[in-house]
């Protein structure tokens, strides 16, 4: 029901506009159904500490029962790159269990997703893309939530 998601989003937004953990900031939420956040990664030489990454969240009317769609954006101005990571495709699609239908739980929220992604980047040791990145990026026409990723490598 639409009512549920907009109430909840308004409350999350009010909280986010108050305080956020270091390195996470709200860029825009003019449209309640689509927010953008910037994320920086502390203490990892792979990611320069002054280089923020742009995340886009899109919410369905069934949020938070359904997961939001969350991807990294590549932008020209201000320049934003898609961070290099073995679970992030170069088109910005993220392979993270908590973002897909099985792994999602309605007690997660935008802030907790950002924290998970920040720690996923902070603990990364491999400056590489997922296997088959070029082919996936060239052929994928599906939306992120319709893709069945294989979580074959929980160590990364």
């Amino acid at each position: 029901m639409a009512g549920m998601s907009s109430k909840r989003l308004q409350k999350e937004l009010a909280k986010i506009q108050g305080t956020l953990p270091p390195g996470i900031s709200l860029v825009s939420a003019d449209n309640l159904r689509e927010w953008q956040m910037d994320l920086t990664v502390p203490d990892n030489p792979i990611y320069p500490p002054n280089e923020p990454y742009r995340l886009r969240f899109q919410f369905s009317p069934n949020y938070p029962i359904e997961a939001p769609e969350c991807v990294f954006l590549a932008l020209p101005n201000p320049e934003r790159k898609v961070p290099i990571h073995p679970h992030i495709y170069s088109n910005g699609i993220i392979c993270l269990d908590l973002l897909d239908a099985q792994g999602w739980s309605p007690v997660h929220n935008v802030e907790s997703i950002c924290i998970s992604l920040q720690s996923m980047l902070a603990s990364n040791t491999k400056a590489e893309r997922p296997p088959g990145d070029a082919e996936f990026v060239a052929t994928n026409r599906r939306r992120p939530r319709d893709i069945n990723f294989l979580y074959h490598d929980p160590s990364v």
Binding site: M4, R8, K11, E12, P64, P106, V107
Partner: peptide, 8 residues
Amino acid sequence: LIDMITFE
């Protein structure tokens, strides 16, 4: 008293 899913 708040539901963790709807925040109501």
